[in-house]
Amino acid sequence: MHPHNPYAAPDSELDVLPQHCSRDGKFALLPSGCDLPARCIKCNAPVAIAPKKTTLYWHTPWLYLLILLNILIYIIVGLIARRTHAVTPYLCDQHRLRRRRRMQLCFGASLACIALTFVGDHFQSGAVFGLSIFGALIFFIVGLFVSRRLYANKITKEYTRIGGCGEAFLASLRQQ
């Protein structure tokens, strides 16, 4: 039986975070080959379900200038020059549900806009047809952004700088 020690450090249910994961401002830094701790990347809550690994891609922003030359050249050079890092982005039940609802809302709005194209085509209204196609495209692009959990800000041979983490998760990491 252990006596109560009022000067002892408090016990925590939190997992011990790996020392290799650190913080650099609003980004998490991971050395090459390392993974994120098993905590929600938004609120730092414990996570019971392990998600699938996600591969983050990054290339230097200077390559976007190739779009001015030719989009096909940009795609080919971007695929060759990109760097990758596989991570496991843990989300708690609350944030996973919020992400799923946002994705469903954008997908439903995009489908509604596509259905509106048939209405515009039926009444031979070019404005309704054009706006509905534009709306479907906009909702699709917005859906891509609300569905992403993390993004790579920079990937080098030594480390990966990851954005999209919540402040509570970043506060639990040691400062770089």
Rank of each mutant, 00 (worst) to 15 (best):
A171Q: 10
C21E: 11
Q104E: 13
V119P: 00
F145A: 08
A112W: 00
G164V: 08
H20K: 08
A8N: 06
P31N: 04
C34K: 14
T54K: 14
A168G: 01
L69T: 09
L97M: 15
C113E: 00
G25M: 12
L30C: 09
R148I: 00
T156R: 01
G130V: 03
F123I: 07
W62T: 05
W62V: 09
I76P: 02
F139P: 00
P89N: 08
S12M: 09
C165V: 05
T60M: 04
R96F: 12
I71G: 06
P89K: 06
K157F: 05
A127V: 15
I133N: 02
T54E: 13
L111S: 10
N70S: 15
N44V: 02
R96S: 14
A81C: 15
L68I: 13
F129P: 01
S22I: 09
S32A: 14
T88A: 12
W58L: 12
P3S: 15
C40D: 10
P51C: 02
L66I: 15
V146K: 02
A168L: 11
G135Q: 03
I67Y: 13
Y159Q: 11
L170Y: 02
L131E: 08
G33M: 08
V16Y: 03
I41Y: 12
C21Q: 12
P51W: 04
A9D: 04
L56Q: 01
T117S: 03
Y57T: 10
K26E: 07
A112K: 03
T84G: 05
R102N: 11
N153T: 11
D24P: 00
R39A: 10
S172L: 13
E158Y: 01
T55E: 09
R102G: 12
F129S: 05
G166L: 07
L144S: 02
A136C: 07
I41R: 14
L105P: 01
L150I: 03
Q176G: 15
V119T: 02
C113F: 00
F139G: 00
L56R: 04
W62I: 10
F134C: 09
G126V: 09
L65F: 12
D121A: 14
L105N: 10
R174Q: 14
N44R: 06
Y151G: 08
S147E: 07
Y90C: 11
L131N: 08
S172H: 12
G120V: 05
H85S: 09
G166Y: 11
G130R: 12
C34F: 03
Y64D: 13
G33S: 05
F145Q: 14
A81T: 08
F134I: 02
N153E: 14
R96V: 03
R148K: 15
A171Y: 03
P37T: 04
R148Q: 11
Q175G: 02
G25F: 03
P61E: 10
K26Q: 04
N153K: 12
Q175V: 06
K53I: 10
T117I: 11
K26T: 14
H59C: 03
F107E: 10
C165M: 08
L150H: 07
F107Y: 09
C113A: 15
L131K: 02
L14D: 15
W62F: 07
L116M: 06
